[in-house]
Each structure stands twice: as C-alpha cells, then as structure tokens.
C-alpha cells in the first residue's frame, strides 16, 4: 500500500454544539494539502453526514481519514445500535431521528444518501446491537 497521511478524530456523542468539528477540521487539513475544491467539498459533505449520524444515533465514535496518492478513504466507526434495514436507511427521506434532533434541522433522512452521492464507493458493515462501520472512498484521479 502506498504511503498515506492519517487524520484521526474522536467524535463526541450527543453534543450537537460541537457536531461537525471533525469535518470542519478535516476540511482545513485538505485545504492545506492543496486538494481540488470539488474533492474537498465531496469529502466534507460525506464526512459531516457520517459524523452527524454518529452523534445522533450512536453516542459518537471515531473517524479516520486516510489520504492516499490516488484516493481518500474515510472510515467512521461507532458502537451504536447498528442499522436494522440498510435498504430502508438508504432511502431519501427515511429517518429514525427523534423530534429533538429534527428540531435542530437534522433527521431529514438524507445522511446516508448524501454519503453515497458524494463518494465514489461506500461500504456499510453493521451489526444490530454492536455498531456500524462505514468506509467511503473519494477518488483523486
């Protein structure tokens, strides 16, 4: 495997005030690396959605972003409740978020669809009651 840069973030659960901090920091890192604006936007959106999902559903988790020569890999892992029905969760507009979360503007049911739309590849590994790991790739070439 070619050399890569790793950025590691702890995502604080249930803290909506700081939600998105890892994504905002990663965006700064990508700007410093001189990545193309469209790539930065894709990664930022996908990562933010993943980060918000971890806060809303899983009491936080960890995010690792690996920058390779030819692609960016995002791995978001949590020990939350898992996803019962992935096909349903992938549907735009479907959400299990509660009212409090919706009042803050989240829970539109666009998280996973946005993650898929803005990445070149997405894998979901989930076990109900144990947690979810989502791996996403954005190609640089």
């Amino acid at each position: 495997m070619s050399e890569f840069l790793n950025f590691h973030f702890e995502v604080d659960g249930d803290n909506f005030v700081s939600a998105g901090q890892a994504s905002v920091q990663m965006k700064k890192n990508m700007r410093q690396l001189g990545l193309a604006p469209e790539i930065i936007r894709q990664v930022s959106i996908a990562m933010y959605e993943g980060e918000i999902n971890m806060v809303i559903h899983a009491h936080g988790g960890v995010a690792d972003v690996n920058v390779y020569e030819d692609r960016i890999e995002m791995i978001l892992a949590d020990k939350g409740p898992g996803i019962k029905d992935i096909d349903l969760a992938m549907q735009e507009g479907y959400s299990t978020a509660n009212e409090q979360v919706r009042a803050l503007g989240f829970g539109a049911g666009m998280g996973l669809p946005n993650m898929k739309r803005y990445t070149d590849e997405m894998k979901i590994e989930t076990v109900v009651g144990e947690g979810t790991t989502i791996t996403m790739y954005v190609n640089l070439k």
Binding site: F16, G20, I45, Y48, I52, L104, F106, M110, G111, N114
Partner: peptide, 28 residues
C-alpha cells in the same frame, strides 16, 4: 432549513436563506 438537504444541494458561493438559527448552521 433541513441541514442535510442544504449540505447536499446548496452550491458553493450560494446565498443560503434559512430560518434555522442554531449553532449547526455555521458548520454546514
């Protein structure tokens, strides 16, 4: 006002008009 919707659909440099005023609008 739905943040994921804005996140996915707003274009760079857009004026974003919203009535959502909580802290998360800054990150989005």
């Amino acid at each position: 006002d739905l943040l994921s919707w804005v996140m996915g659909r707003a274009q760079a440099d857009n004026a974003w008009i919203t009535i959502m005023s909580n802290i998360n609008i800054a990150a989005v």
